[in-house]
Simulated scan of single mutants.
Amino acid sequence: MGYSPSTQPKSGLEDRFGRHITYLRVSVTDRCDFRCVYCMAENMSFLPRRDLLTLEELDRICSAFVSRGVRKLRITGGEPLVRKNIMSLFRSLSRHLESGALEEVTLTTNGSQLKRFAHDLRAAGVRRINLSLDTLDPDRFRSITRWGKLETVMDGLDAADAAGLKVKINTVALKGVNEDEFNNLIRFTHERGYDLTFIETMPMGDVDGDRTDQYLPLSVVRERLMDHWTLQESDYRTGGPARYVTVAETGGRVGFITPLTHNFCESCNRVRLTCTGTLYMCLGQNDKVDLRAPLREGAGDEGLHAAIDEAMLLKPKGHDFIIDRKTRKPAVARHMSVTGG
């Protein structure tokens, strides 16, 4: 691995609304060892392995984006750390960190494999990870994830701390499920030096449930938090969609990702690559371009860059996420695990 483009660096990526694309989120697998109730059905049918990009193909596409001015790569899934030999991709991409072409490679994980891989991730240049954690109660954790064990994730967090990885916890706000835990999650994360970000449940894919029952607006969450904490506005940004406040009592940060109550499309700098090589310009839209085809048809760098240029013309102004209370159908049919979080 370690593909080197044969052409000179291309011009940067800009969509038709003048937004510069500097952030690529890359799903390396649709598989996961959890079955979170808001993300997947319990009995999922996963993609045939032949349909997935090889690690070498993933490296080549990521490198093409880096040559076009992408400064941040986030590796996602499914659960990315269940992909066989995934550390070879991290090690290969680290050459872009060493050259200065790339600012950071980050990871979104459920934490199940962190005990095994935390030190290897650090050695490959990863400095920051996002970990999905919706509850601190072991029984509730099992109920939400269906298959997961909280103690395994906690062991992973200990390993991440020991390796020197900076951790941000992502919590999906679920009405009637975990809304009684938000204050405890703030205490837990800030005591460990983590940021905490709340996320509204997103209407993607059939999950064997009714999202009208799950949906909890973060405007409501924020109002409730203000009964217990002093929330101070912050201009802190990580390059993603979260908007942060500082909790005066702890000194820690809390972020809010609000795709439904207040979208963040005007400043979107992101595109998403699926594990099959489909490039989606928006998580909440279906505009897409196939990047696997030019790779497997033997197209050179020019063909790959031409497909990327085509994609920029398709990036929409914004998403159309909505919780449909009449049909109770998801706004987007594909599961979150297909596109990557």
Rank of each mutant, 00 (worst) to 15 (best):
T145P: 06
L260W: 06
R253Q: 08
F34R: 13
L107R: 02
I308P: 01
N286Y: 11
V247S: 02
P80D: 04
D309C: 10
N286G: 04
M226I: 12
F17V: 09
Y38E: 00
D158E: 15
R237Y: 09
T189Q: 04
G239I: 06
Q214K: 05
R95L: 09
P259L: 00
L107D: 01
G239A: 11
L313R: 14
Y23F: 03
K166F: 09
T212R: 01
G300V: 08
Q113R: 15
R83W: 02
V167D: 03
Y23T: 07
K326R: 14
D206W: 15
A242L: 10
V153S: 05
D15I: 05
R83G: 03
T189A: 15
G205Q: 04
A123S: 13
C282E: 03
K326I: 13
R35F: 05
A118L: 01
S99R: 14
N85M: 03
P241L: 07
A307T: 10
D287Q: 14
L273A: 08
A124G: 04
E104T: 13
E191P: 00
R253L: 12
P294Q: 13
L131F: 06
G284Q: 04
C39P: 06
R50C: 04
K149Y: 05
L53N: 10
A101W: 03
T197D: 00
